[in-house]
Design a protein around this nucleic acid. Sequence first.
DNA 1: TAGTGCGCCTAATATAATTAGGCAAACAAT
DNA 2: ATTGTTTGCCTAATTATATTAGGCGCACTA
Lengths: 194, 194
Amino acid sequence: MARAGITAERIARTAADLADEIGFDRLTVSAVARRLGVKDPSLYAHIESARDLKARVTLLALEELADRVGVALAGRSGKDALVAFAGAYRAYAKEHPGRYAAARFELDPETAARSAGPRHAAMTRAILRGYDLPEPDQTDAVRFLGGVFHGYVSLEIAGGFRHTPRDADASWAWALDTVDLALRNHPAREAKAE
Amino acid sequence: MARAGITAERIARTAADLADEIGFDRLTVSAVARRLGVKDPSLYAHIESARDLKARVTLLALEELADRVGVALAGRSGKDALVAFAGAYRAYAKEHPGRYAAARFELDPETAARSAGPRHAAMTRAILRGYDLPEPDQTDAVRFLGGVFHGYVSLEIAGGFRHTPRDADASWAWALDTVDLALRNHPAREAKAE
DNA sequence: TAGTGCGCCTAATATAATTAGGCAAACAAT
DNA sequence: ATTGTTTGCCTAATTATATTAGGCGCACTA
């Protein structure tokens, strides 16, 4: 038969696209094989298992997201950086819900370490530079920001805000204003500055 | 054969326990049937489908969580209420990771409306009463709080904080302090008060 | 005590994940 | 070119899950 030219990368990209269409939780090896025009077992020459397939989508999504956020962050600082980071993050999640869900898939520790996860943490810290918090407050703030971004976006995507007429963009802007306010006026900062 | 005394409620409770043990995403009709000592098809007299099974766990979890938060909230206000709500929420999620994951399962709109979801929203609003925000800021704040709680807890459970030595409890307390601070000093409040 | 119906069972089908083993196309060396 | 080898995709087969159809006995009713 004609060789289909399957590679692990093509599989991952196809799987990511499929996840965006049908949801990451419904992603199957079979569906990916179908879309690539090959039989299911053919994929096992390139991936190890269904779990491995998902992990590859996770790595892809983390890279893409980090790239986007990195571009958005370039040349900005302070609240500007906060808003740019948050905007890029949320936009990616809404454009690519399947990939975004994949980004929350639990990788084994070694894989996670080699993923773009650390880049995300570093970029979050970069934002916080503008707020000049001492440790351990900076670490607390990294976790806080991660929680706010992920939590809000995840509730929004899940449709949790549809019951109320209030515009989700406006609430998002409100959240960022509030976070900026809180970080700018944080007591830990004054203790250091003065 | 001896009747096993299966009911939809027993199925849901068994499924919830199982989800806590093996993870909500690995919850299957087969596994529940096995644990109940009956054959798979027997469950279909009580549930409609695998999706229905998951939805029942979701409803159960939302009720339990709302009950717990309700108890924690009783008789408190202001920051006390915020901390109690947050503490009950986080404790439930850590005690019952499978149920907590279920609570994020997407229900169809009618089911969601009959769920304890609205109670959660009402309790969040109750907390905010102490901060006296006008609309639409109050709605924004409800979404913000939901995001913070869910986001932080979900990242923590997923192990996102394990890479850093900083104690997760301490970061959680920091987050709540910061939220309290931000809400107490929120500009929208002054505009109303003065 | 003879229904009658509910509750659980067996049988059967479809989809998914996965392993084993085959065959032919692409590539390398003569 | 021809032979040999690698490698990519295939078929066959197994196991698990979800689900439907239909059977049969236990439990309550008349």
